[in-house]
Design a protein around this nucleic acid. Structure first.
Lengths: 209, 209
DNA sequence: TTGCAAATGTGAGGATTACTCATGTTTTGA
DNA sequence: TCAAAACATGAGTAATCCTCACATTTGCAA
């Protein structure tokens, strides 16, 4: 996993941990950051607090992370990799319209549940769009996820315009993330209704050219 | 990312300008902030720079704006008020499905154009979701805009479940904003395709229960 | 006009925080 | 064994938001 696509702009180089001891310490730093983001949000997260909670010095933090955003970025990348594997698997074996309907619905539920349950993910995807680099990561991630959808669509409709299918998949994915973000920021019952409505709308677009 | 903690919920109130002189100065402050946001983004905007460019002292800035966010908020509110009037007018006279189709398509184009043309708006709506208060404003704004759509839907389908119509309108609006945000962050031709695809998807949902 | 309170204007300085760097400690590998 | 590389430290630096004590201007009643 290179992940250099969105890394161009920031990337002050930092040493990667090569010893067992430092690898464990980096894990503690990430865990501390994750906990703090869950409690207060990434904006309110203080580097000194991360260091203190991880039981390391401020200097050690900067030994492995070039700046504050890099910590959030590292956490975001983990979720990204994890969820991409999940999506790839869910859509791999889809061969017909009904299968797509089932898989898509399931996928939306999984994402919705993930956002509801993971405060860090929630914060990262709804609270760091100000950051150009993270926004680029999100866009690249969204494109990659949409590509799985595109592949399925091409299998279902081999004669359709590939560019149109690509556009549809990208749109469906991006609006899906928006719908879920919306759903988690309102009351639970309304959120559930919104997610259900989104599924209907998106599936119609996916299944009917 | 920001210099100072924003742990407090809402900014403390500040005196509103009551004299002609101060009203003009506040205008200059907002104009300066707008220009700086257009140039560098709201995150990179420095209060000292705003003051200097407006030809006022730092203290004067804080006389009328409790903090940095308040300036961005004030600019955002202007656009909000303006666009709400536009939406209300566009949807007021819709009485049939065809009319809704036309009005909706037009509205999406207007929004798309606005986002493309106004760097400040672009920054505000894609770069301030980190801010809890601004996110709340955006949500309230979205709800208000969706309400215009709901009113139209109720006129077109008086027998349908009002809650379902409400959900549909809210979903369509929110995903529309997401689609447009996506469209302006990719290449122009792809953006145009995405907006067109969104229109198709949303209109199908709006017109067909 | 005059006087005075309220509104407005000012900018040096307080407070916070991301980040650096000189220096000390531990691990590696030959 | 020992030198070099990796790692650890935390006081200090720079940047920035925002305050506050004091100066100036404006509105307005006497």
């Amino acid at each position: 996993m290179d992940g250099t696509a969105a890394n161009e702009q920031i990337a002050s180089p930092r040493r990667a941990p090569s010893q067992q001891r430092s690898r464990e310490r980096v894990e503690r730093m990430l865990a501390a950051a994750s906990a703090l983001i869950a409690e207060q949000g990434s904006d309110a997260m203080r580097m000194g607090e991360v260091a203190e909670r991880a039981g390391v010095s401020i200097g050690s933090l900067y030994q492995f992370f070039p700046d504050k955003r890099a910590i959030v970025w590292a956490l975001a990348e983990r979720y990204t990799v994890e969820s991409q594997a999940c999506i790839s698997e869910a859509l791999r074996d889809v061969t017909d319209a009904e299968g797509l309907g089932r898989a898509f619905s399931e996928l939306v539920d999984i994402y919705y549940g993930l956002f509801l349950a993971e405060p860090v993910m929630r914060d990262i995807w709804s609270g760091t769009q100000a950051d150009k680099a993270l926004r680029a990561l999100e866009l690249a991630d969204s494109r990659a996820n949409a590509a799985f959808l595109t592949a399925v669509l091409k299998r279902l409709r081999p004669d359709a315009d590939p560019v149109a299918l690509d556009t549809t998949a990208f749109l469906v994915w991006q609006t899906g993330e928006a719908a879920i973000r919306l759903a988690i920021s309102v009351d639970r019952p309304e959120g559930d209704r919104l997610v259900a409505a989104y599924k209907r709308m998106a599936l119609r677009e996916l299944l009917d050219p």
